Computed example of a mutant assay.
Amino acid sequence: MLTLDKIYHASYVLKDVIRQTHIVKASAITDDCEVYLKPENLQITGSFKVRGSGYKISQLSEEEKERGVIACSAGNHAQGVALAATKYGIKSLICLPDGAPISKVEATKGYGAEVCMVKGVYDDAYNEALRLRDEKNLTFIHPFDDENVIAGQGTIGLEILNEMPDVDAVVAAIGGGGLLSGVALAIKSLNPNIKVYGVQAEGAPSMYESVKQGKIVSLDKVSTIADGIQVKEPGEHTFEYISKYVDDIVTVSDDEIASAILKLIETQKMIAEGAGAAPLAAVMYNKLPVKGKKVVCIVSGGNIDVTILNRVIKRGLIMSGRQQTLCIQLQDKPGQLLAVSKIIADHGANVISVHHERAGEGTDVTAAYLRIILETRNFEHVNEISKALKSAGFKLV
Rank of each mutant, 00 (worst) to 15 (best):
V199N: 13
I229F: 10
G235Y: 10
K263L: 14
D255I: 12
K212Q: 07
I261C: 15
Q230P: 02
G235C: 01
T238K: 07
D220G: 08
K263S: 15
D254F: 11
V246K: 00
I229Y: 00
M207W: 09
P234I: 05
Q200M: 09
I261F: 06
I225S: 07
K212N: 08
S259V: 07
I265A: 11
Y208A: 02
D227F: 12
V250W: 15
D220K: 00
V252I: 11
Q230L: 13
A201P: 02
F239N: 06
V250Q: 07
V199H: 14
I265F: 08
L219S: 10
I265L: 15
V222Q: 03
K212C: 07
I249H: 10
K221E: 03
V199T: 05
D220E: 04
E202S: 14
V222G: 00
T224F: 15
Y241M: 02
I229H: 01
G203Y: 12
I257T: 14
G203K: 11
Y241G: 02
I242L: 03
V199Q: 13
V252L: 13
S259H: 08
V222S: 03
A204I: 05
Y241R: 01
A226M: 09
L262W: 06
E202L: 11
S259D: 05
V231G: 00
D227I: 12
T251G: 05
E240I: 06
Y208N: 03
A260D: 09
A226H: 10
T238Y: 11
V217L: 09
Q200R: 10
D247L: 09
T238M: 14
A260M: 05
H237W: 04
T238G: 11
A258M: 12
M207V: 07
V231Q: 04
P234F: 00
K244M: 06
Y245E: 02
S253P: 08
V217H: 02
G235M: 13
A260C: 05
A226Q: 03
I265K: 11
V217W: 09
S210H: 10
D220C: 00
E256R: 10
V231S: 04
I261Q: 09
T238L: 14
V246G: 03
D255M: 11
K212V: 01
P205F: 15
V217C: 10
K232E: 13
V211P: 02
G228K: 14
K244Y: 02
E240C: 04
L219F: 00
A201R: 11
L262M: 12
G203Q: 10
E236D: 15
E202T: 07
I242Y: 01
V222I: 01
A204T: 11
T224D: 08
D247Y: 04
V222E: 04
S218M: 03
T224W: 12
H237M: 13
A204N: 09
I265V: 15
F239M: 04
A258N: 12
Y245R: 00
V252Q: 13
E236R: 09
L262E: 12
